[in-house]
C-alpha cells in the first residue's frame, strides 16, 4: 500500500493539520513504508475472533450521581488565548 501526496493531503484535511509542501513528500514516503510493513497482518486469519478494545474488560463503571464542586469559571478560562464574558472566544463560525 503506497500513499500519494494527494492521499496525505486528504488525510491531513480530515485531521485538520496544515502541511507545507515539503512535508508532503516525507510523510507519503514514511507512511507508505509503515503501511507496507503492516500489510503482513493480512496474512493472519482472524475470522471469528472478537476485537479487544481495552485490556481489562471493565464495562459500565458506575458511580453515585452526587453533587460535587466544579472549577470556577475564571480558572477554566485561565489558559484560553481569548475569552469574553465567561466564554471562550473563537473566530466566527457562521458567515
Amino acid at each position: 500500500m503506497t500513499l500519494s501526496n494527494e492521499d496525505i493531503k486528504y488525510v491531513a484535511k480530515l485531521a485538520r493539520i496544515h502541511l507545507d509542501d515539503n512535508e508532503l513528500d516525507d510523510l507519503s514516503n514514511d507512511l507508505s513504508v509503515c503501511l507496507e510493513y503492516f500489510e503482513k497482518i493480512n496474512a493472519i486469519n482472524t475470522d471469528g475472533v472478537a476485537p479487544t478494545f481495552q485490556p481489562n474488560h471493565l464495562s459500565n463503571v458506575m458511580r453515585e450521581d452526587v453533587v460535587s464542586e466544579t472549577m470556577d469559571i475564571e480558572i477554566v478560562l485561565k489558559n484560553a488565548p481569548e475569552h469574553i464574558d465567561g466564554f471562550f472566544r473563537i473566530p466566527k463560525v457562521i458567515e
Partner: peptide, 11 residues
C-alpha cells in the same frame, strides 16, 4: 478492526 482482533490473539 483487524489490529483489535490481533490484540485478542496476543492476549
Amino acid at each position: 478492526k483487524k489490529a483489535l482482533r490481533l490484540r485478542t490473539l496476543i492476549k
